[in-house]
Every structure is written in structure tokens, then in C-alpha cells.
């Protein structure tokens, strides 16, 4: 697996993801605030290589004359914050619950795993719809909501590994040296569940960016004029036949982000073979 030189399967997706993040958060500042303003005289201008393009609008403009490059990058800020934030939250929640369930077992385990099964039985988008209707939909709310959408996988993966590690001889040996449960979990079990959870985190980023897009597309995400990849696509749908570029750029960004997140997860799983069997078993298609 570890070849001489650079492992492209790991570094290419990682590089593209980092580039995407930097572009989304730095790009709009370089382009200036003017590009994101509405300019009704410049409505629906095509990308630079098509006839009728406007100077300084390389990816065209939308129905309000806003620069698509700026809009797409700004939309990425929301989608990426929500996707990465919620994936991080989901993995943290999942590691805590999974360690409790797997290490302590007993009724803790039964309650947590039953909760996970019941949670999966609910249609998540319906719950999200209800939650957004009640508490609104700014970025923190979306992060919490999608954390709830993603906690089951890391919980299961962590539990399975913790269950295996807790009866390893070296954990029993450390207990025999006088270590407390909390110490054993922190020092001997946690390091064993980290690599698998980083892999899960990567896959979860991909999944949650898609879900965020779906929520925004349905009008459950951040409210316009704040852009997100999902709501740009929603806004552009009526113009799909005449101005395809409004939908194309944010859709392309979602595709690239998700492919890279999944490829990164795959590369990490290949690199740290530990936990791969658990992840394969838990990721039910």
C-alpha cells in the first residue's frame, strides 16, 4: 500500500478539497463585494467563452445579474461550513456514544443502539422539515440538524471497535496495573477508534454536503439572498433551458466535493487497514 513517493489517491482528493475550501472563503474577498450585487442590466449573461458574455463575469450571471463565480464560491461557504461542521459534530457525538455503548455495555449499550435503530427508521428529511419550521434555519441550526442526521454510522463503528478492544489483553493488563475505566477508554481504547472515525468523517462530509444541498433545494436551508449550493440550484431551475450555467456550477461543486470526500475516505481506509472491516460492515448501501 505504501509506495515510494506520494500516494496520489490520498493527496489529490485532499488537495482538491483544501483548494475548494480556500477558494470559497478567500475567493469572494478577492473578487470584491461589487460582483455579488444585483445588476438587472446584466441578467443571465453566459460564461466567458459563449457569445454575449460580459467582461469580468467568467462564469456568467444569474437571473438578478449577480456574478456566478462569486455566488458559487459564497454558496460553498455555507455548504462547506454545514457539511464539515456537521460531519465533525456527528463523529464527535458518535465516538462518545460508541465508546459508552461498546466499553460499558449493558443497558447503556442497549439504549444507545436501540436509539440508533429507531432514529434510522424515521425519514430524516421529514424531521428536518419540522425542525426548520419550528426553529428557523441559520447555519448553527443546520449544523446541529445534520449532526443528528449523521451520528449513527460513527456510533456503530466506534462501538464495534470498542467492543473488540476492551477485551484485548493489554486493556485488561492496564486494568491490572490499577487503571480506571475512564483512563482505559481515553488512553487505550480511544486511540484505536480514531483512524476509523477519520475515515467515517470523510464519508460523512460527502453525505452531508448532499443532504445540505437537498435541504436548501427544498427551501429548508439558509434563506436567500444568502447563497448555498442547494438554493442556487433551486433558483436556477426555472432557467435550466436558457441559462444552464446557473445550475451547472453549484452542481459541479457538489459533485467534486462529494467525490473528493469519498475518495479521501477510501484512501485513508486503504492506508490504515485497521477498522476497514468494521466500516465495510456498517456502511449499508
Amino acid at each position: 500500500m505504501r509506495r515510494r513517493g506520494i500516494d496520489l489517491r490520498l493527496w489529490v482528493p485532499l488537495g482538491v478539497l483544501v483548494l475548494t475550501i480556500v477558494a470559497c472563503f478567500v475567493g469572494p474577498m478577492l473578487l470584491g463585494p461589487e460582483a455579488g450585487q444585483q445588476a438587472l442590466g446584466e441578467r443571465l449573461a453566459p460564461p466567458a467563452w459563449l457569445p454575449g458574455a460580459i467582461d469580468g463575469r467568467p462564469l456568467g450571471t444569474d437571473a438578478f445579474g449577480r456574478d456566478m463565480l462569486t455566488r458559487t464560491l459564497e454558496g460553498g461557504q455555507v455548504s462547506l461550513q454545514v457539511g464539515f461542521g456537521a460531519a465533525t459534530g456527528a463523529v464527535l457525538v458518535g465516538m462518545v456514544l460508541g465508546l459508552v455503548a461498546g466499553y460499558w455495555g449493558g443497558w447503556c449499550d442497549r439504549v444507545i443502539m436501540a436509539g440508533a435503530d429507531i432514529w434510522l427508521a424515521f425519514p430524516f428529511l421529514v424531521i428536518a422539515l419540522a425542525a426548520v419550521a419550528v426553529v428557523g434555519s441559520d447555519i448553527p441550526v443546520l449544523i446541529v440538524l445534520l449532526t443528528l442526521g449523521g451520528w449513527v454510522l460513527p456510533t456503530r463503528v466506534t462501538r464495534t471497535i470498542a467492543l473488540r478492544v476492551r477485551s484485548e489483553d493489554y486493556v485488561v493488563a492496564a486494568a491490572g496495573a490499577g487503571a480506571s475505566d475512564l483512563y482505559l477508554v481515553r488512553r487505550h481504547v480511544l486511540p484505536q477508534v480514531l483512524p476509523a472515525n477519520l475515515v467515517v468523517w470523510s464519508f460523512t462530509v460527502g453525505a452531508l454536503v448532499v443532504i445540505e444541498g437537498a435541504l436548501s433545494f427544498l427551501g429548508l436551508g439558509v434563506k436567500p439572498p444568502t447563497a448555498s449550493w442547494g438554493n442556487i440550484i433551486a433558483d436556477g431551475t426555472p432557467y435550466l433551458q436558457t441559462a444552464w450555467w446557473i445550475v451547472a456550477w453549484p452542481a459541479l461543486m457538489i459533485v467534486v466535493t462529494v467525490i473528493c470526500a469519498n475518495a479521501l475516505g477510501n484512501a485513508l481506509r486503504g492506508r490504515w487497514n485497521a477498522g476497514a472491516d468494521v466500516i465495510d460492515k456498517e456502511v449499508v448501501p
Binding site: 489483553d169 485488561v172 493488563a173 491490572g176 496495573a177 490499577g178 487503571a179 480506571s180 475505566d181 484505536q192
Partner: peptide
Amino acid sequence: ERTLMRVRGGVVGTVFQDPLSSLNPL
């Protein structure tokens, strides 16, 4: 648990069968 933790390692030292698996590989 507090008493047991004090005794384990403090009053009673334990050696296990397989020295590879009784040491944390990490």
C-alpha cells in the same frame, strides 16, 4: 472500584500469558 484500583498494580502485580497482546502496540 477505588479499592480494587489501589490493589491492582499496587498490592498485586499481574503478568499475562501472551506478552505481545498484553502490551499496547501503539
